[in-house]
């Protein structure tokens, strides 16, 4: 029976892996196609640029045509997003690399709305390499994840050029809205600690990549301290991750 169980698990895993791969492949092709459509829309607009309102007219007619022939998913709003996709990322190689090929269209749309190119670049890489869900990505952009990094708050220096330096992942401030705690916690370290432990996964995501939890209140005894609230996290020891 046991042998059977591991056999079943193995087959299930194969199928799950296959589904994931298929999903990624479909996604990559879709994103690539959207980019091509975006480029074609822009080219077409440039041909007709002398005519007033040609762009609007083009998008609305294209939307009608596609909806009639291919069904849902081609609203004017979406076509405008596709157009914007090409304008924001005129080089497709940005998506072609192994790094960001797994970004969903929803995630790309969220990142497109970010104005600063460096910030966009950051979210592309992080969302892709850390497999952020759309919800998490949206939350992170909203909470200024990138701007809260110490490295973006300092002028470029030797420190910021050093790729593995802590300034690239330590933030100020940290935001923990997921704890649902009031603003003022004076004297309630234990409440804060409990809440953080209770929402550890989200806290680790807020801390950023490469952290794993080792031990709650790992105590290092000294003669005077009776209550030490220390947590230990280790950064996974790999250069690639940073």
């Amino acid at each position: 029976m046991n042998n059977n169980n591991s056999f079943f698990t193995e087959i299930s895993e194969l199928l799950i892996q296959a589904r994931t791969n298929a999903f990624k492949a479909v996604n990559t092709i879709m994103v690539q196609t959207y980019w091509q459509i975006g480029r074609r829309i822009i080219e077409e607009e440039q041909h007709g640029q002398n005519r007033a309102g040609y762009g609007e007219y083009l998008i609305s007619n294209l939307s009608r045509h596609l909806s009639d022939t291919l069904g849902k998913g081609f609203s004017e709003a979406n076509l405008k997003n596709i157009r914007q996709f090409y304008l924001t990322f005129p080089g497709f190689e940005q998506f072609d690399t192994h790094c960001v090929a797994n970004l969903s269209w929803t995630n790309i749309r969220l990142i497109m709305r970010v104005n600063d190119p460096k910030e966009r670049e950051y979210y592309l890489k992080e969302a892709s390499s850390q497999n952020w869900s759309s919800r998490l990505l949206e939350r992170n952009i909203k909470s200024g994840y990138y701007h809260r990094l110490l490295s973006t708050q300092q002028p470029t220096s030797e420190t910021t050029l050093e790729k593995q330096h802590p300034v690239h992942f330590i933030k100020d401030p940290y935001i923990a809205e997921f704890l649902n705690l009031p603003e003022d916690l004076t004297g309630k370290e234990s409440v804060l600690e409990k809440a953080l432990i209770g929402n550890l996964q989200q806290f680790l995501l807020e801390l950023g990549k490469g952290f794993s939890f080792v031990d709650r209140q790992m105590r290092i005894s000294t003669e005077t301290s009776h209550f030490m609230l220390i947590w230990c996290f280790t950064t996974i020891c790999s250069n690639v991750l940073w």
């Binding site: 939350r139 330590i170 100020d172 401030p173 935001i175 923990a176 809205e177 705690l181 603003e183 916690l185």
Partner: peptide, 8 residues
Amino acid sequence: SKYKTLLP
């Protein structure tokens, strides 16, 4: 680092 319990 400061922490905040509310989204900015």
